[in-house]
Nucleic acid binder design. Structure first.
Lengths: 327, 327
DNA sequence: CTGAAAGCGCTAACAA
DNA sequence: TTGTTAGCGCTTTCAG
């Protein structure tokens, strides 16, 4: 039954049939025990009910399954005792852990390191701690947002981002601000209380005040969900003309951004590609634990829809079609 | 370290500290091997990137974790070889399996039965095969949709549902049709090619024809996602007045249904409650494998928003506040 | 109460 | 090629 064993195909088939008839199946627990390792991979994710994360985890799970690995899900939302939970699953001698949580609480990766379990991070800080990493080109992301807005004639830039920023939000946000300032514009910064739709909506009162005061005519929202909330709060509930009075750009390109009622212009990151790269990195490390750590950076694509006025060539933020780079 | 052991709290603390310092942690593989069972629970789900399922799985995972169980995720979308996958995870001597897939391919539950692993089904057919089950009151669901529409003055009823129906869609759909006919109305039935937003949108051409022909003035969509697609295709893209010309009711009450741009009237099923009940049933069976199979039925709530005109008391489809019944 | 030993199901190594 | 054996880390049992 062991994978790499050489048996004549005929015998193999016969054995498999017999096993099936007998209802026998290898005991993965025993196999793992003796082999010092299971084929379980931890997937730690936060806010799983968010469209972005849901797609990410789905893809991750699917690819893992295809590689013969089984995804052990760890929801890492605030309020859970992550330290304890990670210890729990580490007890299964995981083959690896993939982290996509917002708050990768260094605890997690430290615990994994101490247990000798390889970690792959998605959209987290640079791998100071010795992990493989998949990330996007944060600089290009912020720039893309800026260009989409400025290409539409925006002069007074606004930025809406959660007060409590994550690595990836901070990155895109900073790059955006840098671009604006480089172009000689100041940017008006508003803080939301999270990155959900509700948070976006809640920010609209403040937003409207700035609009009527003539202080912004273009807004970059750190997250599509946030942008959608803003659209609902501003366009639908308050009758603000978008993109007439205010142009809006989001980030991620979740499915809902493309729904007609929103038609949100946004900066797309390819979730499926990233997830694929993450499991690929995990498998590679499994095959060769000593290989140098690798980080794969993905490019971003401008997606022009109905909330901006510029359509400068529908170009990508990135030359290559797939938008993947390595270093 | 064993859970039910009696040790003086002082000793326990000391041991735990020492273990921590040494980086020791019980090997769950070994423990499972000797105990004949892991504390892994399989969660088989399809279309994980759908808002409904994402929330369901998130809640499931969370509650499982709280019970000290670890969720092993199995994405069961079409195209995967479910038979093989389920065998794979069964190799881990699961403590149980929770199925929320659309297509619980009897294979899955048969395989579990043969392996002696208890199964809990959510929104699947009655447990002919000996499983615990969580479901909703299908009859009440269809009725609620009918009442919401008829309460708004609808006379010519339409129904949009996937051609290929699942257990739960069939149930609500049938009940809806039965109510219409009982009230002396015929219902115009349209088939979509799935239950996604895109499917709903794709159905709009046909829908518009029926509207202009004066054949429907109220539509029940088997799924919120479908309804949202219809709203986009009809209201936004074709300028149909909703609820003026057509009233629409969805089913599920996913988050997006409440977004201002849609404000979809719908029939709510409480995903979190259902998920909670599912893990509760699983734990109970674990504690007592011999107990009789149980099925918990949940009620549904009418949610009146902007796509209907009747607001008949905002009442629930169900007496009790929680809407839970047992039998 | 503490200590020793058996055995869970598997695979790798070694012997025949 | 086929058959035996040791040992993975744990818990339960039995002896001291």
């Amino acid at each position: 039954m062991t994978k790499g064993k050489r048996v004549s195909p005929e015998v193999r088939a016969r054995v498999l049939d017999a096993a099936d008839a007998l209802g026998y199946r290898v005991n993965a627990l025993a196999r793992g025990l003796q082999g010092q390792q299971s084929n379980l991979v931890g997937v730690v994710a936060s806010r799983l009910d968010t469209p972005f994360r849901a797609l990410q985890v789905r893809t991750l799970a699917q690819k893992l399954l295809r590689e013969g690995m089984n995804p052990l899900l760890l929801v890492a939302d605030a309020g859970e005792d992550i330290r304890a939970l990670i210890q729990n699953i580490l007890a299964y001698r995981l083959a690896g852990v993939i982290v996509t949580s917002d708050t990768p609480s260094p605890d997690v990766i430290e615990a994994c390191n101490r247990a000798g379990v390889p970690v792959v991070m998605i959209n987290r800080g640079p791998a100071a701690t010795g992990t493989d990493t998949v990330c996007m080109d944060l600089g290009a992301g912020g720039r893309a947002a800026f260009e989409m807005l400025s290409g539409g004639g925006v002069r007074r830039f606004g930025l809406l981002a959660p007060a409590q920023e994550t690595y990836s939000v901070t990155g895109r946000t900073r790059a955006f601000v840098a671009c604006c300032e480089e172009a000689g514009h100041t940017v008006l910064r508003l803080a939301s209380d999270g990155q959900s739709h509700a948070s976006g909506k809640a920010a609209c009162a403040a937003l409207q005040a700035e609009i009527t005061a003539g202080r912004i005519d273009g807004l970059f929202c750190a997250t599509d969900l946030l942008a959608l909330g803003v659209l609902d709060g501003l366009r639908h509930d308050r009758g603000v003309d978008i993109p007439g009075t205010l142009q809006v750009v989001g980030f991620d390109d979740i499915e809902q951004a493309s729904w007609s009622a929103y038609a949100l212009s946004t900066v797309r990151q390819d979730i499926a590609d990233q997830a694929g790269a993450a499991v690929e990195l995990a498998m590679k490390r499994l095959a060769d634990p000593e290989r140098p750590f690798e980080t794969r950076t993905f490019g971003l694509h401008k997606v022009f829809r109905g909330t901006t006025r510029g359509h400068a060539g529908q170009s990508n933020a990135q030359k290559g079609p797939s938008g993947e780079q390595r270093r």
